[in-house]
């Protein structure tokens, strides 16, 4: 309902760390020009592997509405198979953006004129030295590249801070590789 609001919906699977990724982006964007930040996870009874989502809202002003995002500007997908499984792109604004972790080419995706950004974050994360399946740090690099909502330096610091004691450098490197390898198409 408020036009000065950027709404980002993150879709992943239970255990993939979508909430952690959204939290890192919340911290970075807060410190670089969005004093109004809320990150609202939606909890069901899901277990590991089930589809989950969280809403990240960014604004220059204070945010009072903590309801889950219905009409996102940006959708971030940590596992491309979710696009086939459930209606995760529901409500995306006409000029919206979808960011997907996928091994497929950007041309394989089309969605009502939305911009599409892709990177094989799963593969890049392993190249960065992370165990297979850790994609939540990497996808942040794709977010930075496709949205330009905040700078990579701030994000990398926020990633290293969040993953202190849990391979901070590899996680940051994964985000950097994804930043460099994100391909934008669509519309």
């Amino acid at each position: 309902m408020k036009s000065d609001l950027i709404e980002i919906r993150w879709h992943g699977r239970g255990g993939q760390g979508a909430i952690t990724a959204a939290k890192i982006v919340a911290k970075a964007t807060f410190s670089t020009g969005f004093p109004g930040v809320v990150m609202v996870p939606t909890f069901g009874t899901e277990r590991r592997g089930a589809p989950v989502f969280t809403s990240l809202k960014l604004s220059k002003k204070r945010i009072y509405d903590l309801s889950p995002t219905q009409y996102p500007d940006i959708i971030i997908v940590l596992d491309h198979l979710l696009l086939e499984e459930s209606a995760i792109t529901a409500g995306l604004k006409p000029d919206g953006l979808i960011i997907v972790n996928t091994p497929r080419h950007v041309d394989a995706y089309r969605h009502n004129g939305a911009r599409i950004a892709v990177a094989d974050v799963t593969d890049l994360a392993m190249k960065a030295g992370l165990p297979q399946g850790v994609v939540n740090s990497g996808i942040i690099g794709s977010f930075a590249r496709a949205t330009e909502l905040t700078d990579m330096d701030t994000l990398l610091k926020a990633i290293e801070e969040e993953f202190r004691g849990r391979r901070p450098r590899e996680n940051a490197r994964s985000a950097m590789l994804a930043y460099e390898n994100t391909v934008i198409g669509g519309s």
């Binding site: 004093p35 809320v38 909890f43």
Partner: peptide, 10 residues
């Protein structure tokens, strides 16, 4: 619960 307890804000 959740709306505040599990939501992140500054």
């Amino acid at each position: 619960g959740y709306l505040l307890s599990h939501t992140y804000m500054p």
